Amino acid sequence: MSALNTRYHRAALGVFAFIVVAHWAEHIAQAIQVYVLGWPLPQARGVLGLPFPWLVTSEWMHYGYALLMLIGLLTLRRGFTGRARVWWNVSLGIQVWHHFEHLLLLLQAMTGDHLLGRPVPTSIIQLLVPRMELHLFYNTIVTIPMVVAMILHRRPSRAERALMVCTCAAPVAATAAAAAAA
């Protein structure tokens, strides 16, 4: 586990970022299908949901992704220092709530007992915002601080660099050149 936050931190962050961006792209594709192409919501299933429709309707799959995100954010957290850690923690905090909402949806799907007697599993914030838009929003607000954290992690201050235990930071010359250009 410690290797993921030291010598393999950069690679692990790359894999994690790829998974996050691919999932986020699925939500964007679904929104385009609804708002640009005018597809009815039941037919707008993103890219992977078109050949595999069960992916969109499976609460287990959605919960599994929320859990994967939570585990990834927790597991890779130790490699961050300073400002990057603060932003990573913001992403983690939002994902804790997002995970809770998916757990609530999964439990409703498993028991058939839906929130406030709704006909389908419903999350708390979904009482105010439609599900597709809500999950696009959730994934966006988890991703933005995560990306900020990764950028700050690659470009640490001298004090942050001294505390780092991984090799993610850009070489000092590249960081100095970027600072001079700004």
Rank of each mutant, 00 (worst) to 15 (best):
L104V: 12
V142E: 11
A174G: 01
Y8W: 15
A177G: 09
L104N: 11
L50W: 14
G38F: 02
W54D: 14
M150N: 13
H27Y: 04
M164W: 04
V147E: 05
V165S: 09
M69A: 08
R155K: 08
N5W: 08
H153F: 06
I71Y: 07
I71C: 10
L4Y: 14
M61R: 08
A169G: 09
L92Q: 04
V165T: 14
H23I: 02
V172H: 09
R131L: 05
E160P: 07
T167N: 14
H23W: 07
P121L: 01
F18M: 12
S2E: 13
M1K: 05
V20H: 09
H62D: 06
V120D: 09
L50T: 15
A29D: 08
V47E: 05
T6Y: 03
M61D: 08
Q30P: 01
Q126D: 10
L50C: 03
W24A: 05
T57A: 14
S58W: 08
A169L: 03
G117V: 06
I94H: 00
T57M: 08
L104I: 07
P119H: 01
P119G: 03
P119K: 01
Y65R: 07
H23L: 00
W39K: 11
A174T: 12
P130R: 01
Y138P: 01
R7Q: 12
Y138E: 10
R10E: 14
V142K: 01
I19R: 00
I71F: 11
P156V: 07
V120E: 12
A176R: 15
E101F: 01
L67V: 13
V148K: 02
L128S: 10
R161M: 10
L127P: 06
W24G: 03
Q95W: 03
P156D: 07
L70Q: 12
V15F: 12
V148Y: 06
V148T: 09
S157Y: 05
R154S: 13
L107W: 05
I141S: 06
Y65W: 15
A29Q: 05
G64A: 09
G117Q: 03
H9R: 04
R161Q: 13
H98N: 10
L92D: 00
H27D: 08
P40H: 04
W24S: 04
V20Q: 10
R77Y: 12
L67E: 04
L115T: 09
I71W: 09
W88L: 13
A159P: 03
F52H: 11
C166M: 01
I125V: 14
R154A: 14
P156R: 03
I94W: 04
I124F: 11
R85L: 15
A31P: 02
R131S: 11
V34E: 04
V36K: 02
R77C: 10
A25M: 13
P40R: 08
T57R: 13
S123G: 15
G93C: 05
A66T: 06
V96P: 00
T140G: 10
L116F: 13
A170G: 02
H98K: 00
P145F: 04
Q30M: 10
S91N: 06
S2G: 03
A25P: 03
V36L: 09
Y63A: 13
V56S: 15
A11L: 12
I125H: 00
R154P: 01
L76Q: 05
H98C: 01
H99F: 15
E59T: 14
L92W: 11
H98T: 12
A162L: 05
V47T: 12
L70R: 00
T111W: 02
W88H: 15
G49K: 06
I124P: 00
R45M: 09
R83G: 11
S58T: 12
